[in-house]
């Protein structure tokens, strides 16, 4: 849960980018970090293995300014997507306030997307959280690959696989070109902060 510090008038919000391995979670954060470097002011931390895969997580914190008299510190994390790192994914999910599920549009990855979303549901349940009620944005990444002749699933098919019951906000995107990367992030910040509205009202008293 978001941590509200009434003394420093500060709220720390935790948002996690989740999804299958090599789906572009880290690239999303890298794009934001690069593009908004002058506003972010802090360093992106990334714990990688030798072959450039996320071992533990990436961490990108920044302030979005004051809301209702509180400084809002958003802390973005990614999880390691590889199946074997589930214990680490659970650690990173601890205390999560909002989630971006980064799905891979490549036809080859259809099954992996479904399994990863299921894994997210299970891991959240272990913290007594429900995927249906937590702030969630789905991003269909790698849309640019279609132009290169690589088979990608149509959005309708991805929606059917992943979002038919959740009905979450979604964005077709390309983390490499930056298409809809900021829009995804804006949406999840917005949904998450709004979900904390009541807590902020209480904290402000």
């Amino acid at each position: 849960m978001a941590l509200i510090n009434p003394k420093k008038k500060e709220v720390q919000v935790k948002i996690v980018y989740y999804g299958p391995g090599r789906g572009g979670k880290t690239t999303n954060l890298e794009y934001i970090n690069k593009k908004f470097k002058s506003r972010i002011k802090s360093e992106m931390v990334t714990v990688k293995t030798y072959n450039d895969r996320t071992l533990f997580f990436d961490f990108l914190p920044f302030d979005i300014g004051m809301i209702k008299g509180y400084t809002i510190k958003i802390q973005f994390y990614t999880v390691p997507g590889q199946v074997k790192y589930n214990a680490t994914r659970k650690l990173v999910l601890r205390g999560v306030d909002g989630i971006v599920f980064v799905a891979d549009s490549m036809t080859l990855r259809q099954e992996m997307n479904i399994r990863s979303l299921e894994n997210l549901r299970e891991n959240l349940a272990s913290f007594n959280k429900d995927l249906n009620s937590i702030p969630l944005v789905i991003q269909y990444n790698k849309r640019d690959l279609g132009k290169q002749g690589i088979p990608i699933l149509p959005i309708e098919s991805l929606e059917k696989d992943l979002n038919s019951t959740l009905k979450a906000s979604y964005f077709p995107a390309s983390a490499v070109t930056g298409e809809n990367v900021a829009a995804t992030m804006k949406k999840i910040i917005s949904l998450t902060v709004i979900s904390l509205k009541e807590k902020l009202d209480l904290g402000g008293k």
């Binding site: 941590l3 720390q12 802090s42 931390v45 650690l91």
Partner: peptide, 30 residues
């Protein structure tokens, strides 16, 4: 979860406590 609740220093310390907290929580979990 890696949130900073309180941080104090001797006035000569400029560490990035938010990154430190994220890594420390993960490290502790590991």
């Amino acid at each position: 979860a890696g949130n900073v609740i309180v941080n104090l220093d001797n006035g000569r310390c400029e560490h990035d406590v938010y990154s430190l907290a994220a890594l420390a929580a993960a490290n502790f979990g590991a």
